[in-house]
Amino acid sequence: MVIDEEHDFARSGAPFRPAVRRKLSEQILGQFRELLESGRLGSGDRLPPERELARIFGVSRNSVREAIRALEDQGWVVSRRGDGTYVSDPGSVTFEPPLAGAVRSRRKRLADILAFRRALEPEVAALAARNATESELRRLAAVLAEQAESVEHGRDDADLDAEFHRLLARAGRNGVFLSVFTAVQDVLAECRAESLRGPSRRAVSLVSHRRILKALEGRNPEEARTAMREHLDAVEENLFSLPDLPDVDQP
């Protein structure tokens, strides 16, 4: 059975239901668990795309992405690039408590992603300081204004965070950097999972983004490079201070 992504699941009485706004990714994962263990989702079924699941659950795509990643870590689903996400053989895996499998290896994974970001994003910021147009600077400022509003009202700002960094990559005017950055967006999004973005991190990120933009507006590549490094330092400090991340050696 294949779940038709064009079908209106909400009106047709689909098995999914809106998630309560508490530990969203865990609640979404719990619903998948019920459906998989009951057989209402079976081996070979294709899940609706993230945007459709986010609409059904009434949450951000980031929350849906985190839950699906946990299912992948536990072997319940497999993602096929350019095709979709499919249910594996439920009889061949053991379902762990919500997010337990993902949390076990999360720290090392995040350290790897941050190492990659350190190698790429400071230079992207420096290039943007040299090459950004006035229109691009205004767009970056508008994104930060939206982010500030989200932070003030306690809303998830992951999409705005990602948009700020995407605009920086585009403003750098380096096609190779932009291609690499675009290709790894799903990987970079793991650093922005809702469970990893508490109020303090959102506020600190906003301050860091403003420093980066100020350097761009001053056309100062070295200041932009430094501001990005300090931003990534702050992200790392926040991530690895979380109590639910297991201890592993960092690179």
Rank of each mutant, 00 (worst) to 15 (best):
F32S: 01
L188S: 11
R51M: 11
L114N: 05
R107S: 14
L216M: 11
R130M: 13
F9S: 11
P199M: 11
L232Q: 02
P15N: 09
A224E: 07
P243D: 15
S12P: 00
V235R: 05
I212F: 07
R11K: 15
I3D: 09
S12M: 12
E123G: 12
R40F: 03
R69H: 08
G30K: 09
N238A: 15
R211L: 02
L188I: 05
E5G: 08
A148Q: 15
R11N: 11
Q147A: 15
A193H: 10
L71E: 00
A162P: 00
G84M: 04
P243E: 12
R130Q: 08
A162Y: 00
K23R: 13
E163K: 14
F95H: 04
L144D: 05
S43M: 12
F116E: 12
A14I: 08
D73E: 05
F95R: 10
I68W: 01
L24G: 11
V248C: 13
S105N: 12
R118L: 08
R202Q: 15
L36D: 01
A141Q: 14
A129W: 03
H209D: 13
D249P: 04
E217A: 15
L120D: 11
P18K: 01
E5P: 13
A215F: 03
S92H: 14
G218V: 06
V184Q: 07
D161P: 02
R51P: 01
H209P: 09
P48Q: 15
L213A: 08
D73P: 06
A141N: 11
R11C: 12
E194R: 14
R21A: 10
R202N: 15
V93G: 08
S241N: 09
R69G: 00
N238Y: 13
K108Q: 10
V143Y: 09
V20R: 14
D89P: 06
R69I: 00
P246M: 11
R46V: 01
D112R: 12
F181A: 13
E37K: 02
A14M: 14
R104H: 08
E194D: 12
H165K: 10
L35P: 01
S43P: 14
V187L: 12
R138L: 14
A128V: 07
E37R: 06
L29H: 02
A142W: 04
E217Q: 15
E37P: 02
A169T: 02
D112T: 08
D73H: 02
K23F: 10
W76H: 07
L114D: 03
R197T: 11
Y86A: 01
A129G: 07
F57K: 05
F95T: 04
L137D: 04
L242N: 12
R155L: 14
D112Q: 12
A193N: 08
L242H: 11
D157M: 14
I113T: 09
G75V: 04
S241I: 09
V103C: 10
V235L: 12
E6Q: 13
A227Y: 11
G172E: 01
R202Y: 09
L196V: 01
A142P: 02
L35G: 03
L41H: 06
P18F: 00
R106Y: 03
L120Q: 10
V2G: 07
T85H: 00
L36R: 00
D73S: 08
R106H: 05
N131M: 09
R170Q: 10
A14C: 13
A126G: 04
A169E: 00
A169M: 06
P199F: 09
Q147M: 15
E223Y: 07
L35Y: 06
A54H: 04
A141L: 06
